[in-house]
Amino acid sequence: MKNPIAIAITFAMIATSVTVFAASETSTPTAAKALVFTPPNDEEIPNNEFGKIVRQGKNIFEDTQHYAKQYVGNSLNCVNCHLASGRKENSSPLWAAYVRYPAYRAKNNKVNTYEERIQGCFKYSLNGKAPAVDSPEMVALVTYSYWLATGAPVGAKLKGAGYPEVPKPGLIPDANRGKTVFVENCQVCHGSNGEGKKVDGKYIFPPLWGSESFNWGAGMHRINTAAAFIKANMPLSKGGTLTDQEAWDVATFVMSHERPQDPRFKGNVAQTKKEYHDENCRYGETVNGKVLGGKHQTAAK
């Protein structure tokens, strides 16, 4: 005689399978909600060798000019695009990015590791050169990111990740309107010529264009990306106060100025634009009689 317990378990498994199958056939899929996550506080960094590297990564992130100067080619620090030491939600926080890699990126048409993603930041946003995967600086930055993501589920889309997309406005984004927004909201910190502000020789507010800003290959040069960052975070401590139209307009104004050449430069602007800038940007366009990207005919070294 068969074991009655085994028979009951078998029927339960069959019933469960039928229910799951039926649900998959008849239910309407719903988008998964982003999970809410809070990174650990600095006070929780352990006082051991691991914690020492975490603190080193935090130092590099906040003052890249000092702690990783050999890899930086402009006047920016990592924290300029990832506010509050990489903690702030909707400012591309490290804790949200770390758990999403490895990931495919259309930018280089391959699956990137987290280390490769950081290397791209140095190459484009910092207009410098990429630290080796096993360099002390890279190890420290990855360790700091890993620590910030303590407890976050791998592969999860976390609430506050990246920069929240801003819908296209009713009017075509306009640099002239954007200049007005800039003067009224941005100039006080970033200067009338987008040159940034220094105290004791150090930038406290980063340059937004010109030779000391990010280059034409950085993700931030795309108007939609800049508008998303601005809408969520600018003016500093007053994120969300600009309208969608104002965010797009001022992003268009800022990105209508010259900056360092795209490291992928192909010898002429038109060719580089065709291959890498068929997107929401002004690279290769003529502004005030000058072709953006044409000032520097060689890529940054």
Rank of each mutant, 00 (worst) to 15 (best):
F229G: 00
T180Q: 15
F214Y: 12
L141Q: 02
A251I: 11
G219I: 04
D249F: 10
Y163S: 03
E137D: 07
V254E: 10
V183T: 14
R259C: 04
C121P: 00
I172D: 08
M220V: 13
Q187N: 12
F182A: 11
S135G: 00
S135W: 02
A149T: 05
R177Y: 08
A232Y: 00
L158D: 01
A152L: 04
Y146I: 07
K197S: 13
D249P: 03
P169F: 02
L171I: 06
I204L: 06
Y203S: 10
P260M: 09
E195P: 08
V250H: 13
F214H: 14
G128Q: 08
V133F: 14
P235R: 10
I223F: 05
G217K: 04
A228T: 12
N233V: 00
M220K: 03
N176Y: 10
A149L: 01
G239L: 09
A140N: 05
V166T: 15
M255I: 09
T243A: 00
Y203H: 08
L158H: 01
A226H: 11
L171D: 13
L171C: 02
L171P: 00
L171K: 15
I172W: 02
Q261V: 06
S135T: 07
V199D: 11
V183D: 15
H221M: 08
M220H: 00
D244M: 06
T150C: 00
R177E: 12
I230R: 03
T252Y: 11
K202N: 14
K238Y: 08
K238T: 09
M255K: 15
F214E: 03
A175R: 15
N176Q: 14
Q245V: 07
P169G: 01
V181D: 00
F122C: 03
V199A: 10
M234S: 10
P169I: 07
V188F: 14
A140H: 04
I223L: 03
T143C: 01
P235Q: 11
Y146M: 14
N185K: 15
L208R: 06
C121W: 13
L158E: 02
T252L: 08
E258D: 14
A149R: 06
I230C: 05
K202F: 05
A228S: 15
M234C: 04
P164Q: 10
K168V: 01
K198S: 01
H257V: 13
G217N: 03
V254W: 09
A156Q: 01
E184V: 06
L242E: 00
R222H: 09
G128H: 04
P153L: 02
C121I: 14
G151E: 05
K231F: 02
W248T: 01
G217A: 10
N224W: 02
